[in-house]
Amino acid sequence: MVRIVLTPQLQRFTETPEVEAIAATLRDALEASFAANPQLRGYVLDEQGHLRKHVAIFIDGQMLRDRQNLSVSLTPDSEVYVLQALSGG
């Protein structure tokens, strides 16, 4: 199962359930989180469906570079961390 962990910084605004899901891509994994709490979508993605400029995602320890294409493949046991970037504060 893919494990999706959201930064606790988001807890100031909304719930951040830790989710484990079957997800072939990053988009699938994020959708699993959004299904658990729909309000999360607007905090992580902008209205064009792109990763927000000052949100960082790490997949198995590697930072995601492409903010528009979220179809990057995951392994069955990937760990996805959605974090608050140090920029943007």
Binding site: F13, G42, D46, H54, G89
Partner: peptide, 8 residues
């Protein structure tokens, strides 16, 4: 205007 998570 949240610095990381957009306008709310």
């Amino acid at each position: 205007k949240l610095g990381h998570f957009g306008v709310k």
